[in-house]
Structures are given as C-alpha cells and as structure tokens.
C-alpha cells in the first residue's frame, strides 16, 4: 500500500499502481485530462510506465466552464 495525494486529497493505492491504473479507477481513462506528477507534467505515453510511490503528489485536471 502506498499513500499518495490526489487533487489535494490523501488516498491509498495498491502496490505497483501506475497512473494508467489510477485513471481507470476513477473512470478517467477515456476523458480529456492532463496530469501533473510531483510538479511535472506527464505525457500520455508515460501513464503506464509511471508507477506511483508513497507521498507522491498528483494533480488531474480537465476543462470546466469558464469565461
């Protein structure tokens, strides 16, 4: 088990959990989102490779209504 911070909230994830796995867990794998991992933007191609570690900070953003 690892504890990470996702969009400001602490969550627990299974060991060997990738960003790709996380997106599936939250039903976001087919959505237009962008991801920042410990302050760095992760490109789509690296979602599978990036395994989440304890204390990682993740931001998942999308488009919302705005002026």
């Amino acid at each position: 088990m690892a504890k990470i911070q996702l969009n400001g909230k602490k969550i627990s994830i299974k060991p060997n959990f990738s960003i790709s796995d996380l997106l599936k867990k939250y039903n976001l794998h087919n959505k237009k989102v962008a991801i920042e991992h410990n302050g760095k933007i992760i490109t789509n191609n690296d979602y599978r490779k990036k395994i989440l570690k304890n204390k990682d900070k993740l931001e998942i953003v999308h488009f919302i209504g705005g002026g």
Partner: peptide, 19 residues
C-alpha cells in the same frame, strides 16, 4: 468558447462534464 482548467472531482465519478 473559453474554458477553464480545474481539478477533476475525484469523489464523484459520474458527475457530468463539459466535454
């Protein structure tokens, strides 16, 4: 159209989204 960039609501997976 202009759109804003914000955190995804991770607590509510079924909430409709703009797209």
């Amino acid at each position: 159209v202009t759109v804003a960039v914000r955190r995804v609501n991770i607590l509510d997976k079924k909430k409709p989204i703009l797209t």
